[in-house]
Nucleic acid binder design. Structure first.
Lengths: 159, 159
DNA sequence: AAATTTAATGAAAATGATTATCATTATAAA
DNA sequence: TTTATAATGATAATCATTTTCATTAAATTT
């Protein structure tokens, strides 16, 4: 359903901001826009550089602060792929939510998204979550599943 | 089978070291000893402090270097629980290998190990690994599964 | 057992991602 | 428009981890 949110930068998140009492500012709009336009796993600096192209007055501090806010609001996910910098991506949004996990190449750092087996996985995960919640009295909010290994290029170049 | 590896610090890893051409040094022995004696998820500094009690000449650099070596050898696992410092724990050893995962409290940082559902999980994981390897030509070496949420204390104190 | 080779060590400095400080600016409400 | 204050951005600070390099000590050879 394209155009559902009007032209220009997506505004689907304005309601959430208003509801939380947060102000809608230019830096925040552009940071969301950049996240929305990218399907990659951007680091804070990646995001900073892209926002900077559109709005050169942006400060790196604001990027970090905004990302932190968005993580806390649940609008984006923060990942750690072990390369010393965090990565961010939209959790849901105007597009359909896409539950996926990652294959991470320990040699070149390439990240492959996959959505295979998500259904079966989700089923097991749900069951596990329920049981663990009960047993440990632990209120599960989120989970991560990641596979580490060698991508095709790095795998063949090592033989 | 206690005593299988002789008295004093465990020596089950000496063979692996020799095989790789690595020297068996005092710092390395004590770092392994500390890891072996602890069931917790120690940070580099935790390990440094414990080793320091036994062998005050130890340097933090050596701890980092040794941990890196051990990770590459596959003797220990390195985890990131999102608190800005890496954690390490023995992957296998004289004790039976224990495949487990973690519940991480996003409020107080407490980490709970669990081994429940590991069998079912492992089954799905194996299947997933096989299929993903084929589909993406990705050679999987390792995986992490982590649940984030609120532990019992933090959960109740927030209501 | 002493000499030799060189991997391993440790002190200190460097790095690099992230966070804190604080004066200034701009959003949203009156 | 005025006002209150949340948000911003430049700068400095933090802090885990790495790098550098002169020194030390395993392991091998004599």
């Amino acid at each position: 359903m394209p155009g559902r949110w009007g032209k220009g930068p997506a505004r689907w998140w304005h309601g959430e901001f208003r509801g939380c009492g947060y102000r809608i500012t230019i830096p925040r709009q552009i940071i969301l826009q950049v996240l929305d336009e990218s399907k990659e796993h951007l680091s804070a600096e990646d995001i900073y550089l892209r926002v900077h192209n559109i709005y050169p007055a942006i400060g790196l501090t604001t990027v970090y602060r905004t990302l932190d806010l968005l993580v806390n609001m649940g609008l984006i996910f923060k990942f750690d792929f072990g390369d010393g910098r965090a990565r961010y991506e939209l959790s849901r949004g105007p597009k359909e939510p896409s539950h996926h996990h990652h294959l991470i190449c320990i040699n070149c750092g390439r990240i492959i998204d996959y959505t295979d087996f998500v259904d079966e996985e989700l089923e097991l995960l749900k069951k596990t979550e329920k049981e663990l919640s009960k047993k440990y009295n632990f209120e599960i909010k989120n989970h991560t599943i990641q596979f580490y290994g060698l991508c095709d290029k790095c795998s063949t170049s090592k033989e």
